[in-house]
Each structure stands twice: as C-alpha cells, then as structure tokens.
Design a protein around this nucleic acid. Sequence first.
DNA 1: AGCGCCGTAATTGTATACAAAGTTAAGTCA
DNA 2: TGACTTAACTTTGTATACAATTACGGCGCT
Lengths: 244, 244
Amino acid sequence: MQNQQKISQYDKALMGLRSLVWSGEFEASTRLPEVSLAQRLGISRTPLRQAMGQLVDEGLLERIETGGCRVVSFTMDNIIDAIEVRGAIEGMAARLAAERGMVPELAQECRKVLDVLDAAVSDPRNIDFDTYVPYNARFHELLGRLAGSTVVEREVERACRLPLASPSAFLQGQELIPDFRVSLRIGQDQHRSLFNAIQDREGSRAEALAREHARLARRNLKFVISERPNLASRVPGLALVATT
Amino acid sequence: MQNQQKISQYDKALMGLRSLVWSGEFEASTRLPEVSLAQRLGISRTPLRQAMGQLVDEGLLERIETGGCRVVSFTMDNIIDAIEVRGAIEGMAARLAAERGMVPELAQECRKVLDVLDAAVSDPRNIDFDTYVPYNARFHELLGRLAGSTVVEREVERACRLPLASPSAFLQGQELIPDFRVSLRIGQDQHRSLFNAIQDREGSRAEALAREHARLARRNLKFVISERPNLASRVPGLALVATT
DNA sequence: AGCGCCGTAATTGTATACAAAGTTAAGTCA
DNA sequence: TGACTTAACTTTGTATACAATTACGGCGCT
C-alpha cells in the first residue's frame, strides 16, 4: 500500500532474465534471441538489452563476437575462483571494519542477527532453515557495510553477485542432508568469531576468519557436485555448471 | 589495414563520455543531458545510454532517483578505499599465482617487462617516463592474468578501473617533480620483489607486497592533493575530487 | 518580500522502425 | 557425394518517435 515503488521495465527485464538464466532455461553457448525473450517477458527490446548488459557485467552472460549474448558455462574452477574472490573482498571488509571501527548502529544490528542465527541452529535435531537462510544473507550484507565505506560496500555486493559465489548459493534445498546441518553450525560459529574479532579490533584475525568462512561454501560446492543427481534441481544455478 | 576492427557506436559513446567526464567537463551533481551529449558525440541516445550504464557500474556516474545520471563527486576517502580495494584484489591475484604457479608464457613476459622498467629507472637523473608509464600498466595487467584464472583476471581489471585507483592514476604529468622519481624507483623495486615472491611460491609475502605496492598510490595521492594547484591540470580526474 | 501552486517546456524511459550483418538453406558445379 | 556460391531470411545495432515524468518559471496569495 505504501511501498508501492514503481517497477520499471528495466527492473522487470533484469529480474526476469536473471531468474530464467539461473533456472537453466537456456542452453549454454547458444545465443539468446532478443525478440522472443522480450515478448516472453512482456517488454520491448530496449530495456531487455540494458538488462543483458548488466548480466554480462555480472558474469552470467557473455558477448558473442558476431553479436548478441549467450549464457556462460561454468566450470568448477570458475566457481572456486569466484568464492575465493568473495572471500578476499569480505576479508578486506572485515579487516577494515576492525581497523577503523564498526559503524555503531550496524554493529548493534549484527548482534541481533547473530542472536537470531544462534537460535536457528540451537537445536541440532531441528535446524530452522527458513530463518537461517535470510538472516545469513543479512549478516553478510551487514558485513559489507560495517566498515562504513561505500566503495567497499559496493565491491562486497558485487562479489556476492558473482555466479554461485553468493553466501546463500548452496544453502537452498539442503534441509534434508544431515551433513549440511553440521556445516551450518560451523558457519554460525565462524560468524560469531568473525564479529568478535572485528569488535576487538583484531584486523588480521578478522580477515583470516572471513576468508575461511568463504571456504565453507567451497566445501559445500564440492559436496553438492558429488551429489549432483539428487540436488541438481534444488540448487539454483547448478544447471549452468559444465558436466565434463 | 588489417587491424581495422569496426568501432561500434557504443564504443564511441563509452570512450568519448569517459574522457569527457575524466576531463572534468561536467559539474558534479548536475544531470548529464542525454540529447545534447548524444549530439556532441555524434551518436544517438541508445548507445549513449548503454555507455552511461557502464560508467555507473564503474562508479564514475551515479543514477539520480528522478531519472538520468550525474557525475560522482569523490572524496579523499573514496579514493583511498578504492586503492585499498585494488590492493586487496591484486594481492589475492599475486597470492594465487604463487600458490598455483604462474602461467609460464606470462611469467616470461613479466621478466621482459621488468627488464624494461629497470632500464627506465636506471639513471636517477634521467628517468624515462614515456617508457615507464605504459610498461608499469602492462606489468599490472600481467599480474591479473598470472594466476591463470579468468574470474580473477576480470576482477583485477575491474578494480583497476575504479576511479583514480588505477596503477597509472598518479603517474601522468609527474616528470618534473623530484619526489616522484624516488617513488618510481621504489615502485619498481617492489615489482621485482613481488615477482620473485610469486616465483618462489611465497604466497603470503606476494600478497603483502602487492598490498604495500598499492599503498604507493596512496602516498602519491596525498602528495598530489597537497600540491593540487600545480598539478590539477596534469593529473586526469583530479577535477572530480571534492575540494572541501 | 517570501512561499506555494500551476502550466509549460524539457527530459527521460520505453517502444518501434530500419538498415547492416549474420545465419541458414537450397542449388550448382566439380 | 561433397564443397562452394548465392539468395532469402533472421537477428542484431542504432536511430527515431512517443508518452509519462520531471524541472522550471511565472503568477497569485499571505
């Protein structure tokens, strides 16, 4: 009623196309046809092409020499590298937050988020995934802003948009796998340690913890790949990973 | 005759607009008028708006809530942060190159570049700026590719495009200032040490050196700011820095 | 004089039109 | 049969047209 902010055609194109690509709708290495896509999304080619440019920038699409775009086909190495990049940038953000001091309001909000996450994993037999996933995302978002630098914030956000490098990438649809419950508890323990390190102005430790925390995603990636047949449909974007 | 690759209208828009903005042609915080700009660049609004989107992404422009774009006004802190980001990403690239091993062909090319740079600074009385600047840029480009990861390469390139964070940002127009000659010799010494660290698989040292190397740019920034009246016209983009 | 309101002019966001390339397929020749 | 040529057809890149907002300036009101 109040938050009725206008949704532009460009936004519609960006969100629509992104989710279509993530869902594995398009064959990698075949060109995206602009006209039919525009029709399908109910918009004209102009905002669609804008959105395609953005997705090229995010690394989800790539330009074809002769014109147009195609979906990128990812290798395991690509994803590992993207996670490494995220770890490096989140690590820098954590270190700067420690060295320069946290923005007080954001620090306070971090504490609340951490409390919620603690509660979500408190019962090993009954982990609250529906709470954990969004609050985990929120924690990582706050981490990017904690140093109070808009430049750093932007770069953290960008790194999290790298295909399959998001902190939430391998969290979806894993309620049923026992191994992942352990992974979540470990992850939350790292969240706590990371926050404490920043609070205690231990920049180097904070950086190392943030990097190691990103490594959890790598472990989850490897596990998911080995279990691909069972999980392919539940992990968004897994369809984009080359099967060779 | 052979390298006659077609230059698209979009490329013309991107290069033209970027250089116009860098030159301080537009007042920060006033909207860029699309029609007159398109006329001035000799293109239509369509490729111009594409280019504006790209420059927003690079951080040179920002969107206005009510529509259109304006030039960003940078503070010292913004630039310091951008340099910090570049240091972190180049540091990661250097570490990965050390840990994983360099691509042999690129390592060989690095050696050649370093030899040229050594020669350029060998005579303290007569430093060859016209050679140093492009070869320094080349070294940093090679550094991004040394780990053999396209993902890392992309991110290094992006970090170097952050406004005033480029390795070459404060090199132009400093032939005449004695203090900077020393800076160049120190920088080249760091290049050597960095390369040796990578070669000897000393990942942590390589990372630290790359970060410290980026700090040179910070020193140069501070010097340039304090000497602004003399240098403003010679350092591209300095006009975009807020004078408060 | 200062502040708010309204109408006009300018500007953006989006759709469509059009020309230049690129792609595909049929047909011809070796 | 297979490769090359050519012609019709798609598809993209760019320009232009149009409608919805937005910015601006004058007018009236307090």
